[in-house]
Amino acid sequence: MKKHNFSAGPCILPQEVFEKASEAVLDFNNSGLSILEISHRSEAFVSVIEEARSLILEILGLQNKGYTALFLHGGASTQFLMTAYNLLEKKAAYTNTGTWSTKAIKEAKLFGEVVEVASSKDKNFAYIPKNYSIPTDADYFHCTSNNTIYGTQMKSFPKTEVPLVCDMSSDFLSRSLDFSQFDLIYAGAQKNMGPAGVAVAIIKEDILGKVKRQIPSMMNYKVHIEKDSMFNTPPVFAIYTSLLNLQWLKNKGGIAGIEGKNIEKAALLYNEIDRNPLFIGYANKEDRSIMNPTFNLIEGTDKATFDKLWKEANINGLNGHRVLGGYRASMYNALPLKSVQVLVDVMQQFEKIS
């Protein structure tokens, strides 16, 4: 029986994507070869990666606007490094909204001055800072749109004269935004796009080539662009599965089509968290993530009984991150509303027997 998967990542993907990907593992497009063994230089795979790169730009509304999409190794953590390697000449501005932005700041400091323009560390990252100033002489401004650990999400983005860089790993492709306001977007695939093992970077090409340092080839965005994201052997299966998921999303009406469902799922769970006297939400209400609601039991409540109930209900991945504890219900694009309803039913059952 398929579990109700609230895992933060690697996470749930659509069932039809799993089925098509598994078929390709045995025989890719009736070629007599597995997707795992075809050459990355073959015409068959080149068409896969070209379609995936094009489809990302189409879904984001960035076609013919000077952007390119790259599939890269190393997940978003390598992008912490690559962003600074390619863009930081003297000074960069960052907001610190949690574990991942803290790590991004650490990597950037290897290359130049980092100005932390705002932080929510004072409240253990339970909110999104607002009303901060970004230095006009910064090489770029970096933010993290959604925080999986603490369950916060930026609802708007600052207008700035400097290039805007955003780590969208955990809410990529989940909500409608003006993506042209960003000069660089990066994301690990393993939330809303595909399996672990690949990251995507969407880059406005005119921001590159402005640092004086020599950049190693593997860290150089321009090299990857020139080689059409094929500078070295790409993670073939992860990219193919990402393509399947992008096709699924397009058939669902794209981001606009999926956003309403994501809002509905979040509203259902948050309404129960706020109604049920045994639970309390973690993040400030105005900054709550629609992807990663975080919550806890009130003090003195029988955690063992609640844990037993949700596990018996065939729910998976509900435990919070080890940094925060409590519970986290990650509700990515492919999670059906009925799974959220099962969790809400368990919470109401727990209320009745407590």
Rank of each mutant, 00 (worst) to 15 (best):
S174C: 12
K265R: 15
I38C: 04
L268C: 13
F6W: 04
K303F: 04
I128E: 07
S22R: 02
T99H: 13
F182P: 09
K103A: 15
G194P: 01
K103P: 01
M291I: 09
T241N: 00
S180D: 14
K227W: 02
D137A: 10
Q247E: 05
L249Y: 00
D171A: 10
F179H: 11
L173N: 00
P235K: 10
G253D: 06
D228H: 11
A329V: 09
D228I: 01
I273Q: 07
G253M: 07
K3T: 13
F80E: 02
R288H: 07
H73S: 12
Y332S: 12
K352W: 01
P135C: 12
P10K: 03
E351H: 10
Q153E: 15
L177N: 08
I280D: 06
P235Q: 05
E264M: 08
A44Y: 00
L70Y: 04
E351Q: 12
A69I: 04
I255T: 05
S217M: 05
S330D: 06
T148I: 13
L70I: 04
E286W: 01
M331R: 06
L57K: 11
Y85L: 06
E264C: 07
V114N: 07
L164F: 06
E58V: 01
G281V: 07
F6M: 09
G254E: 11
S42N: 08
S119H: 07
I105Y: 06
E116L: 10
M82C: 07
N292E: 14
L278C: 14
D137I: 05
L278G: 03
P10T: 10
G281K: 04
P129F: 01
L88T: 08
G197E: 08
A138V: 03
E16A: 05
L57G: 14
C143E: 14
L208S: 09
F295R: 11
L268I: 15
K90G: 03
K261R: 10
F231Q: 12
I35N: 01
V223I: 15
F141R: 07
K130P: 02
D183H: 14
P277R: 06
N131C: 06
T305Y: 05
Q348C: 12
K227G: 03
E264Y: 02
V236G: 03
V340T: 13
I134N: 12
D137F: 06
L243K: 00
E312Y: 03
E299I: 09
Y240T: 00
Y270E: 12
E116K: 09
A24P: 01
F306M: 05
N245M: 00
E89V: 01
A44Q: 14
P216R: 12
I207T: 11
L55K: 13
H321D: 15
V48M: 11
T294R: 10
S156V: 05
V223K: 15
Q341A: 11
K261H: 03
A69M: 08
L243S: 11
F237L: 02
L278T: 03
P195L: 11
L335V: 15
V115P: 02
L278K: 14
N316R: 12
A44R: 13
K261Q: 11
A313H: 07
I263W: 02
G209L: 08
P234H: 06
A52T: 01
T99D: 13
V342R: 04
N131I: 03
K2A: 14
L335S: 10
F28K: 00
Y127C: 08
T68A: 14
L184A: 11
F18C: 02
L177C: 03
R288V: 10
Q348S: 13
K90T: 13
S339P: 05
M82T: 04
